[in-house]
Design a protein around this nucleic acid. Sequence first.
DNA 1: AATCGAATCAACCGCCTCTCG
DNA 2: TCGAGAGGCGGTTGATTCGAT
Length: 316
Amino acid sequence: MVHQCCSKQKVKRGLWSPEEDEKLARHITTHGHGSWSSVPKLAGQWLQRCGKSCRLRWINYLRPDLKRGSFTSQEERTIIDVHRILGNRWSQIAKHLPGRTDNEVKNFWNSCIKKKLIAQGLDPNTHNLLPSSHHHHHNHKLTGTSLSSSSNSKGSSAFSVFQIDNAPAMELKIPVVAFPSFTPSYDYTGSAALLPPMQPAYDNYHQHSFTDFQQHPPAPVPNSLMNSLDTGEISCIWNMEGDGASMSAKHNDNDHQLLQRHDDDPNNNAIAFNTMDAPMESCSAGFDFDQYMDMLQLPCGMFSNLSDPVDQLTWG
DNA sequence: AATCGAATCAACCGCCTCTCG
DNA sequence: TCGAGAGGCGGTTGATTCGAT
């Protein structure tokens, strides 16, 4: 199919020559692109490309503010973070990476990140553990279900406790109605037990506007995402150290006590669970949701519709 | 040095949305 | 309200490069 903008003229396809690049760049830097469909005409008779092709070439290659070179680990992490929330919305993801294009991000994802996640036993689409991974490692799984909240329309479980290989892990899902002061950071370089937060509310995130990140001041990606979140669900997996002797959250390389805030840094809202004193085959953990909400210092009334604040985990 | 498969990436395709008459 | 055109996007393709044998 031929584009409307190219239907009335002979257009060249395929790779751009240096001469074409030079002609297009010179035209746009002096006149701006205006209407892309008119760019080939205005840029001179030898630029026999369709407007769409010119636009793409400018955006992906000629733009002066493009960043060259391979992606940094920080950029990679940002891509993973945003992708978890937005899915394959490459142009939105690229907005968080100055100098990178959607095409570049998409290619990097498909050729590199995707494989890394799969190698870590994660589904690159959902960022959840691959089902085969559970089976392969013969993981146990426990789900806590006593959290009840009218805002939790999915009726999903509040907790999941399971094992990855021999390491116990816990998934915690927190229904939120507004933006909490909870800004975890994650170590993607760790083992499978040190997982990034899961993305249980994919549809919720999509329902509610995430589109205008630019309104928010520059911030780490999770912050800017959370800032525009008006409802949804946060979910994290925390690793539990040792052979089931305790259960603790890892945050900024520090372990923390049960439901205690890190006092030194008000922005450090790590959660920890140290009540898993029994072996993983048989243990329980109480979870005081009220206390947890206090710790997060949530805006007043945020969880007012929670009817059953205390939850209990059992295993075995 | 030659071959071949994998990885990479630029570019295209086709669909969707927005704008404007 | 509707349709045409343009811009924008994500998926896909195909050429090129890279690396192993």
